[in-house]
Simulated assay, not measured.
Amino acid sequence: MIETRIGIVGLGNMGTAHAKYLIQNEVKGAKLTAVADPREERLQWARDEWGEQIKTFGDSKSLYRSGEVDAVIICTPHYDHPAEAMDAFDQNLHVLIEKPAGVYTRQVREMNERAAGCDKVFGIMYNQRTNPVFMKLKDLIDSGELGEIRRTNWIITDWYRTQHYYNSAGWRATWAGEGGGVLINQDPHQLDLWQWTTGLMPVRVRAFCQFGKHRDIEVENDVTAYVEYANGATGVFVTSTCEAPGTNRFEVTGDRGKVVIEGNRLTFWRLRVSETEFNRNFNGGFGSPECWEIEVPIHSGGAGHEAITKDWIRAIREGTQLIAPGEEGIKGLTLSNAMLLSTWTDNWVELPIDEDLFYNELQKRIEQSASNKQVNEHILLDLSNSRG
């Protein structure tokens, strides 16, 4: 079977990383045939590295229309992901986008609708879905081992970033350059995993975002959010880039116990009988269900970007189901948008969010953003994916 020809749009850190493993033939059935970037120095680097076997283009539209590719990996700034994906769909190409899906759900929803209107495979680079520890958590929840979920709690404050980091590029931590701060830059994987592992999206959100806390930046870098789910469960999400030492601890409590992920270890405090049953039958003054602490074995490996690319190529060639469908990128972004909107309006936000209200509030901040001129001129292709 002929190899699937791949094009990469954006040769920043992430685009270059994808290109390298494709060039090294680490993805069976795929072949890198073209790259696009507006920076001539990056295209010259590609020519020097790979010679004439790779076609180079100064813009994505030329690549999409070249006939040199069957599928594309989009590694551009956050704002450009939906527009680039839609243009690629219009040229009958399969698409894999880097995370996040975009900056605001209104545009991402339009991208999803365009994807639904064609027969191409659409994926998103949620490589943490292949991390064995999160796969095991999802398995425990999906199998009913944990029982009905009652509480979620994720504290992820180990994204420490200095002022020097933020000063290293004019687009960093600006509304026009990135569309947000810790929620859109550092946390897309966690926001995705929060809903993917549990299978739950909140019905409403109340969040408190602090902008430029202990740092001279425009955007949010400290967030505490409280959510409520349809089944009565609640959740808390706490994140920061200005806390040292930080914490990364994810807890999910259910009717049959509690799971904690910390330090790449998964511990299951399993109740011998469910809390519901114990509460119904216990007649003493004080007591609690018998609980067993279980260190759940986790196999090594996983979480690599190439794992998602391999899965995407397999779906293209064999029709298999994707681990990370592109359409699901809107879920984590919805959580991010809801947290910001709750802070901006100083109120609860019900899901689905008012997408027009969020968009209008975001535009107010973009208009005042320090990097507004740069972004409007689109001279920062792929820089947002080079930051981490």
Rank of each mutant, 00 (worst) to 15 (best):
I353Y: 00
G326K: 01
P132G: 05
T16Q: 09
A101G: 12
N281G: 10
S300W: 06
I323H: 03
S386I: 05
K136F: 03
R5V: 00
V227A: 04
E113T: 10
Q321W: 09
Q374K: 12
M86L: 05
G67D: 02
Y126R: 07
R47M: 12
N25G: 09
K138T: 06
R106W: 10
V69A: 00
G246F: 02
K136C: 08
D222G: 05
D187I: 05
R387E: 08
A36M: 01
W154Y: 08
K31M: 13
V238I: 12
G235C: 01
T174K: 14
N279L: 08
Q107I: 14
R280S: 14
G301P: 03
G254S: 07
A176K: 00
A19T: 02
R5C: 00
I2L: 08
W292R: 13
E49I: 11
A30G: 01
W196V: 05
Q44I: 15
G257M: 11
E355Q: 12
T267C: 11
F208Q: 07
R106Y: 08
N360E: 11
I6N: 01
G235Q: 02
N25H: 14
R106P: 03
R249V: 11
R161A: 03
L266F: 00
L322G: 02
A303Y: 09
I23Q: 12
G263P: 02
M14S: 15
T130C: 07
W348I: 13
T334Q: 11
R109E: 14
R256H: 09
L351I: 04
H214Y: 07
L183Q: 07
V205K: 09
D90Y: 07
E243R: 12
E41R: 15
W175K: 04
W292V: 09
R106T: 10
G285K: 11
L191W: 04
K31P: 01
H94S: 03
F282Y: 08
D37V: 05
E367L: 11
R365I: 07
P132F: 02
D139W: 13
K364S: 06
I73S: 00
W171G: 13
T197V: 14
G301L: 07
V219P: 00
G102V: 03
P325V: 08
G257D: 11
T16S: 12
G388N: 09
Q210G: 08
R65N: 15
K136H: 05
